[in-house]
Write a protein that binds this DNA or RNA. Structure first.
Length: 461
RNA sequence: GGUGCGUUAGCAAAUCGGUUAUGCCCCGGAUUGCAAAUCCGGUUAGCCCAGUUCGACUCUGGGACGCACCUCCA
């Protein structure tokens, strides 16, 4: 039985889908005004892992990850660049897909763009207005009347009074209550036609929170199973989504809320505003994408994940051990897990069923690698590759991983082969001094030699 | 100020009321011409205080420290 930590309940709960054997999952995606950083990588990889685990467990899952392609930052950035909104967002959507692909993140079933769902958003705002939960203020904005929605704060565990006490932001004109949030922003005179839509409240554009509510219900229904996103979205974004969706549809919105932890730098949250972020492509210049994926999955999704070169190096070494185990047994194919009752598979499954405990699942992989090294059993090697495949790991040819370099301009394969041949000759002539000299020279170039019964092989350090 | 989460060996990171986590590092042995890889074994834990218990890293209470949210944020 799969258990999921439900933020709404602050507890691990048995997962019961609304429709047997079917999962409907929505995850908040990116606002595309810039390149994705490692924090975004974590959301994508974590929920990709969740997506894969549901599939491996036999569920029919529909996964939606939205794209916010209209908001203040996008408008501002486009103006700065002298570029259209569409050109800007398309550029960063393409970049996001490249990054996601590199990290082995499967495409969600749907990637709705906010600009294509404005009508659904307007319909929803109309419903909220009809239910007395939304009002238009003098300035033209349509706001949500937070105090009219009973249960506001149930996800984040905040009471309206608490929120008020910590208020640190200037109250916008026209709101009945400082905590009310905007559903529809009236068009400003200097804004491009591209960011204006007609509505019964006048020209304008949607607020951020309404996007997800509208896209989620349109693609997955008024009530669905799982909603995920970064822990920072818990409040106010997800809290507001609940208020909107439950207010408009008069039924529960989501059964299980999942929130992933942050990527930290020096124990501080990596974020745009702090400026302490590393973009995915920046990191991929130094580290293999699979190492980055492994680095993310080796921590629990709810724990903080501290980023540093030392930790990436550590992850690389660990992943190398797994690939080394596969190398010695040769190519084993990429078959799916055949028997989930097999001992290692059982442990792996138990770990994954326990709120997606990937660190434990990875530990099983290492135990299995030890068995592979000990027994040289092709069946064990195949199992290792199959289980790792569930996490989107270890699917490349071992030799390719071990000999691959990232952004290296060192020795090419032919040069290495020539050096190895020269060393073999020296060895058979018992000229060990020369043999060791060659090995040392190669090591200085980042090439590690390993003599085996079958001959000398090499890998990059 | 309010709310929530966390504090595990040199580093990273899980589980668990009593039995080897796991990876990297380190030490010893096997193997090797020597290494590397691999195998076998070992060293290094549970922020502090009190309580519950036959027994607590694991439960309860208090404290310290750290982080996050309360503003856009994955």
């Amino acid at each position: 039985m799969l258990k999921i930590y439900n933020t709404l309940a602050r507890d691990k709960q048995d997962f019961q889908p609304l429709i047997p054997n079917t999962v409907r999952m929505y995850v908040c995606g990116m606002t595309v005004y810039d390149l994705c950083h490692l924090g975004h990588a974590r959301v994508m990889v974590v929920f990709d892992m969740v997506y894969r685990w549901f599939k491996a467990s036999g569920y029919d899952i529909t996964y939606v990850r939205n794209i916010t392609d209209i908001d203040d930052k996008i408008i501002k950035r486009a103006a700065q660049n002298g570029e259209s909104i569409h050109a800007l967002t398309q550029r960063f959507i393409d970049a996001m897909h490249e990054d996601a692909d590199a990290l082995g993140v499967q495409r969600p079933d749907h990637e709705p763009r906010a600009t294509q769902y404005v009508q659904q958003m307007l319909d929803m705002i109309a419903k909220l207005e009809a239910h007395g939960l939304a009002y238009q203020s003098e300035d033209g904005d349509v706001n949500y009347a937070v105090r009219k929605f009973e249960g506001y704060g149930k996800l984040s565990g905040k009471s309206l009074e608490d929120l008020r006490a910590g208020e640190r932001v200037d109250v916008a004109e026209g709101k009945h209550d400082p905590l009310d949030f905007v559903l529809w922003k009236h068009a400003k005179p200097d804004e491009a036609a591209e960011v204006q839509w007609d509505s019964k409240w006048g020209k304008g554009r949607p607020g951020w929170h309404i996007e997800c509510s509208a896209m989620g219900s349109d693609l997955l229904g008024e009530r669905f199973d799982i909603h995920g996103g970064g822990a920072d979205l818990q409040f106010p974004h997800h809290e507001n989504e609940i208020a909107q969706s439950e207010g408009a549809h008069q039924c529960q919105y989501v059964n299980y809320w999942m929130h992933n932890g942050f990527v930290n730098v020096d124990k501080e949250k990596m974020s745009k505003s702090l400026g302490n972020f590393f973009t995915i492509r920046e990191v991929l210049k130094k580290y293999d994408a699979e190492v980055v994926r492994f680095f993310i999955l080796r921590a629990h999704y709810r724990s903080p994940l501290n980023y540093s070169d030392a930790h990436l190096d550590d992850a690389k070494g660990a992943l190398t051990r797994l690939y080394t185990a596969l190398k010695t047994t040769g190519e084993v194919g990429s078959a799916k897990v055949g028997d989930w009752n097999e001992a290692y598979a059982q442990r792996f499954k138990a770990a994954m069923d326990d709120d997606f405990n990937t660190p434990e699942a990875v530990a099983v992989l290492f135990d299995l690698a030890n068995e592979v090294n000990r027994t040289q059993s092709p069946a064990s090697a195949a199992q290792l590759k199959a289980l790792a495949g569930v996490l989107g790991l270890l699917q490349r040819d071992a030799q390719v991983f071990l000999q691959g370099g990232v952004g290296e301009d060192g020795l090419d394969d032919a040069a290495i082969a020539a050096q190895i041949a020269a060393r073999v000759a020296a060895k058979s002539a018992k000229d060990y001094a020369e043999a060791d000299r060659i090995r040392k020279a190669l090591l200085a170039d980042g090439i590690v030699l390993e003599d085996t019964a079958a001959g000398t092989s090499w890998r990059r350090a």
